[in-house]
Every structure is written in C-alpha cells, then in structure tokens.
C-alpha cells in the first residue's frame, strides 16, 4: 500500500468525529521570534508569522478578535488582528513583559515585568498604563479571580503569591509558597487559588476566603529523578473536577482530582513541558514542550496523549481560538 494512503488512513482515524477539531491554536516560539498557527481540523501548522523579539505569554481577547503576544525583548505586548495576523499596535507593558492575564471583560491586562519587580496594569482600550504595582523579585505568574476583583502575582525569587486588589492596586495579602513559583490560577467558582512552584516541586492550594493554605501537593513519577519534577503551567477544568500540571523537565503532565487532590495519572508529553491550554470544548488539552519544540495533544476524557505537532524553537505559550 502506498505510504501516502497509509498516512491518510491514519489521519482519518484520528479525525473521527471531525467536528471535534474546529479550533485554531497559536503557539509562541521563544527562540524563533514567531508564532505558529495550528489548524485543529488537520492538526497541521498552517502558518508561522514573525511577532517580535522573544515572544512568551500569549492570549486572545474575550471576543477572539485580538491576539496579544508578550514580545519580551521589544518591551511590549503586541496586538495582532486575528483575521489577517497583522500587527495592530503595541501596548505599553513596561520593560521585559513575560506573561500576562486579561481581566474577564478584556478591558485590562495585568503583566509581570520580571526585571523591574513590578506588575503593570494596562487599559486595553485606551492603550495606556493604569498603574504599576511593586511586587517581589522576578514577578512571573499572573492570575485573575473570576469576578475580576483579585489579581495574583507570583514572584519567583521572593517565593510569594501577592494578592492584589484590582480597584485600589494594593497588595492586601502575601502567601509564602514553594521555591520559584511559576504560575497561578483560580477555580472557576473563585473559591480556591492554585500556585505552582518549580524548584520546590510543589503546588500550593489556598482558600480564597481565608487566604489559608488548604494543601500542598507533591508529585512522584517512577523512574524520574525527584528534582526534575518541576510544576510550571497549570489548567483547572471548568467543572472543578480535574487539575493538570505541566511538570517541566520531568516531561509529564500530572492529572489531579481537584476534589480529593489525588494524583490520577502522569501523561508523557514532550520535553520540558511548559504551558497548558484547552480547546474550546475542553475535550483536548494542549501542552507546549520547550526543548523538543513541539505541542502535545492530550485527550482529556481518555487521559491519553494522542499526537504531537512540531512547531518552532522553544515553544512557550499557547492560546486557542474557537
């Protein structure tokens, strides 16, 4: 049988039912200064376009019309028109923005300026800086509560999660977490905050009413040195049932029961798995794998990695457009 037909056949199997794959995926390639565009219909990279220097954090506006990309070494968050992928304008992000989070309505962007120990708050419609907040050393992860009232920033060398009131821009609480906190996220109901710590190898879960830590999660993968188990990116499912953690150089994603905190599985993905994002229907979870330069696709229901797609050098962030 000719090879082309075999491949076609295999692809056809993967694509049943085809209606599942309708999304477009954007991946920042940190060391290529590009964004790869993956068509989820064909699971192929259909476009790669230049965005600026050292692209890392990436997200879409709530209306899916604008693609925001942190171009760290250009000291900006660049806005692209999703229709034609042309640059629209730069937002004043402060120096060296690494990653950011949008407010639920999309009217603000909160970004961490890792070299200046500040978080910059940007008004997205006026394209101006609303405020800059002093935080700890090397701010990194940013998260916003579902009601938009609390913003969390993790500082990697201070080892804290800073709780910030988005009306007053004041830090009202600091929570110590494990060494080198990387990312944070709230449950959809806003009751818990989850913070990953890369070097500590832990995930701290906080009660957002009391700011008290509920539990500290640790991971153990057979055959992998404990020091390589480094939680970085995370994703919490909308129903509050599952939590996924990218474990960096352990090359696995941990699947945790978000109610019992039991680790359900470790899924082997690419090397140095970094960030996670779901498809719109939440049937699949995508991972960026920095060292192997690819994106893995996890089938959430079956808890299986079904495919990896080669992108550029050092894929960092991922955003999905329905």
């Amino acid at each position: 049988m000719p090879i082309a037909i075999v491949r076609h056949f295999a692809l056809a199997l993967l694509l049943t039912p085809p209606v599942l794959f309708a999304d477009t995926v954007y991946v920042t390639n940190e060391k290529d200064n590009t964004v790869s565009v993956i068509d989820f219909d064909t699971l192929k990279v259909v476009n790669t376009f230049s965005v600026g220097q050292r692209p890392r954090g990436i997200a879409l506006s709530p209306d899916n019309k604008i693609l925001y990309v942190c171009v760290s070494d250009d000291d900006a968050i660049r806005a692209f028109d999703v229709e034609n992928l042309e640059p629209l304008y730069d937002l004043p992000s402060g120096e060296n923005p690494e990653t950011f989070v949008l407010s639920p309505s999309g009217d603000r962007i909160y970004t961490s300026n890792e070299s200046d120990n500040i978080v910059t708050v940007i008004d997205t419609s006026r394209r101006s800086v609303l405020n800059q907040i002093d935080v700890g050393v090397e701010p990194e992860g940013v998260a916003i509560s579902p009601d938009g009232k609390i913003m969390i920033n993790t500082s990697e060398t201070t080892n804290m999660a800073h709780w910030i009131d988005t009306e007053t821009f004041q830090i009202f609480e600091n929570s110590l977490v494990g060494q080198r906190p990387r990312d944070a996220a709230f449950d959809l109901d806003g009751r818990r905050l989850w913070v990953t710590a890369e070097i500590g190898g832990t995930v701290s879960v906080f009660d957002t009413a009391s700011y008290e830590q509920i539990i500290e999660l640790k991971f153990k993968i057979k055959g992998i040195r404990q020091d390589r188990v480094q939680p970085v990116g995370l994703y919490l499912t909308r129903d509050g049932k599952l939590a996924f953690f990218a474990l960096g150089p352990a090359n696995h994603v941990a699947v945790v029961d978000a109610q019992t905190y039991e680790v359900l599985d470790y899924l082997l993905v690419g090397r140095r798995v970094w960030k996670l994002a779901p498809t719109a229907d939440e049937k699949f979870l995508l991972t960026t794998n920095g060292v192997s330069g690819d994106v893995s696709i996890i089938d959430i229901e079956n808890m299986k990695v079904i495919k990896s797609i080669k992108v550029g050098r050092f894929p960092w962030g991922v955003a999905v457009h329905e």
């Binding site: 700890g136 500082s155 201070t158 804290m160 830090i171 600091n174």
Partner: peptide, 10 residues
C-alpha cells in the same frame, strides 16, 4: 537588594 525586595512584604 533581592532580600530587601522581599523584605518589603515580610
């Protein structure tokens, strides 16, 4: 300087 940045909060 790093310790002092953290010390602001603690």
């Amino acid at each position: 300087s790093d310790n002092n940045s953290t010390g602001k909060f603690s």
